[in-house]
């Protein structure tokens, strides 16, 4: 691959020639504000925030779509560019509810962060806002289209990554909106990739609602308990309750999850959870008991069978859902503790 040399803000850099200016800048630690570009998705070029000046080019160009070229002299920050960016932010916010106080995405909203950075309140060009009466009735994803800034990331991720194409741009001009066919309720794979890439509060999890944002929220990086892919997830919890699950963009799964990984956690707080050891009485009914009693009862049965019929009259079934440590210890228990190789798990099922 050919390399090209160029300067960004006076800094000379050499990069592969198939990069865009934005990618080249990011690779060398130069941040350029943007809303519609997502690293995993093809560029869109709609938000116009990533504009830069190139020496010899009369108008500012979008760095997310412009490829690098040998000898380019690029400036990412000038007073003029900052004015332009403020202008665009003013316009975006003039068509945005700006109800950050109650918005699910406060604190994780890229639009909010840019508005904060640029000190833009959205008052300067106040005017009509898009309003929508209809709410999407699907059980997973809250779609608040009034907060949508039409960056197109959701459309792209649904097409390019998920291959579902449940949504697309509809209408045009100021009436543009992201829509399903015939504006029906969303009926897709509910992977929530769109939620993951949404830079605002337009797309959130219905499960998340009013559960907590960042104050007092603990984030734990762990692994999804569903299929064998082993996606990296981040569990957000507050007061010992899971309030949402996300995945960080720099994980090997690139922040992408499926419906189960993203929205499949509520079983944890199901009222059906077992909370005490149970022993079955003669009547056939279960009765709650203490750990000591349950363990002693179990151990006594194991001892009895082993003594009467030998260790191979006992068997153990371990679980592909338990950890390596637990599985290791389980078979060690069966082999060394009980004395049998009758131990298996459900790999084949």
């Amino acid at each position: 691959m050919a390399m090209v040399s160029l300067t960004i803000n006076g800094k000379k850099i050499t990069v592969p020639d198939d990069l865009t200016i934005l990618e080249a800048a990011n690779r060398h630690g130069i941040a350029i504000p943007n809303l519609c570009k997502h690293p995993q998705l093809t560029p869109f070029g709609g938000c116009r925030l990533c504009v830069v000046e190139i020496k010899g080019v009369p108008r500012p160009v979008a760095s997310c779509t412009t490829p690098v070229n040998e000898g380019m002299e690029i400036t990412t920050v000038t007073e003029q560019l900052e004015q332009h960016r403020k202008f665009v932010l003013e316009l975006i916010l003039s068509d945005h509810p700006n109800d950050c106080m109650t918005c699910e995405s406060t604190g994780s909203c890229q639009l909010q962060e840019l508005a904060y950075t640029y000190g833009v309140k959205g008052q300067e060009y106040a005017g009509e806002r898009r309003t929508y009466a209809k709410k999407d009735g699907n059980p997973f994803i809250e779609r608040d289209l009034e907060k949508c800034i039409l960056c197109g990331r959701c459309v792209k991720v649904c097409q390019e990554i998920q291959g579902v194409e449940a949504i697309d741009f509809g209408y045009r001009g100021f009436k543009s909106k992201i829509t399903t066919a015939y504006e029906d309720d969303l009926n897709c794979e509910f992977c929530g990739q769109c939620v993951h890439v949404c830079p605002t509060g337009a797309l959130t999890g219905k499960l998340w609602k009013r559960k907590g944002r960042y104050e007092g929220v603990k984030e734990t990086d762990t692994v999804c308990p569903y299929c064998g892919t082993g996606c990296n997830i981040t569990v957000h919890s507050k007061n010992n309750e899971i309030i949402r699950i996300t995945s960080r963009p720099w994980t090997w799964n690139e922040g992408f999850l499926c419906v189960k990984g993203r929205f499949g956690y509520p079983f944890v707080s199901s009222p059906d959870r077992l909370t005490k050891p149970l022993i079955k009485r003669k009547s056939g009914e279960f009765e709650e008991t203490t750990w000591t009693a349950a363990l002693e009862y179990t151990a006594s049965w194991f001892r009895k069978i082993r003594e009467e019929h030998g260790p191979d009259a006992l068997g153990g079934l371990s679980s592909a859902r338990c950890t390596n440590e637990e599985n290791y210890l389980f078979q060690k228990f069966m082999r060394a503790g009980i004395g049998t190789n009758n131990v298996d798990h459900c790999a084949r099922l």
């Binding site: 938000c47 116009r48 316009l91 068509d95 060009y125 100021f174 543009s176």
Partner: peptide, 11 residues
């Protein structure tokens, strides 16, 4: 409706 300046600005 793709880019902000035209979509919102002209409005």
């Amino acid at each position: 409706g793709k880019c902000v300046p035209c979509r919102v600005g002209t409005k």
